[in-house]
Amino acid sequence: MVDKIVIENLSLTYAEGNESLRHINLKIAANAITVLFGPAGGGKSSLLRCINRLNDLTDIRLLQGKILIDGQNVLDPKTDVIALRRKVGMVFARPVVLPFSIRGNLTYGLELAGEKRKSRLDEAVERSLKLAALWEEVKDRLDDPAVALSGGQQQRLCLARVLANQPEIILLDEPTSGLDPISTGKVEAALQELKHQYTIVLVPHSVQQAARTADYAAFFLQGELVEFGPGRDLFTNPKDKRTEDYVEGRFG
């Protein structure tokens, strides 16, 4: 088992507010789904936004520790953040389709990187849509505006858009929180397929989804990593009282 991401002693404080992450140590395995779960305000989104340096857009008072991806500390100021974000894709809670066609959404990332060859772009469109289990539904209307898709389709389009960049890591922040059960099922099924090729870090929108999808699970509470372990152990036999209480629904 390879540790794709190694987080060492990571602490984060935004310009406003208290410590959002406190001394986090976590190893995220390649080719698996690692789930970060816990009540709102635990720091899960903050951690994801550190991994792809999206927090660069936010005012931060203090950021300490290391995030090593393939051994390179991405928090190093010398990191090429553009390359990093291509390698570490992100899917957000609300599906945000760009104001282009379906195809335009998918080719956007590649075009940013200077890809102009139509064959390459077409190939990426088809490949990424198939990976996100959306190809059959949209293959005949790739030039329609992406907003015309249903919410569930839009979210799979967002996943496909990330995949078109050929990332190595995919971060998903409550990607199914606004979706119906059927769409949620499709996204989860797609992730189960994708984990064979990618490193997946998922913030689920419920404990049930966490238990369903986790190969590994990390329980976050108010900026602290309370417990980490293989999913089957953590949900059936938690070691920490707080994890047990949360998993069994005694607080939320």
């Binding site: 792809n52 999206l54 857009l57 553009i82 390359a83 974000r85 291509r86 894709g89 992100m90 957000f92 609300r94 945000v96 760009l98 104001p99 956007y108 990332g109 940013l112 990187a113 967002c158 858009r161 990330v162 960049n165």
Partner: peptide
């Protein structure tokens, strides 16, 4: 959100 998405896809 458009800006955030674009940046997250590797846009300057």
């Amino acid at each position: 959100a458009f800006r955030t998405v674009s940046i997250s896809l590797g846009g300057t």
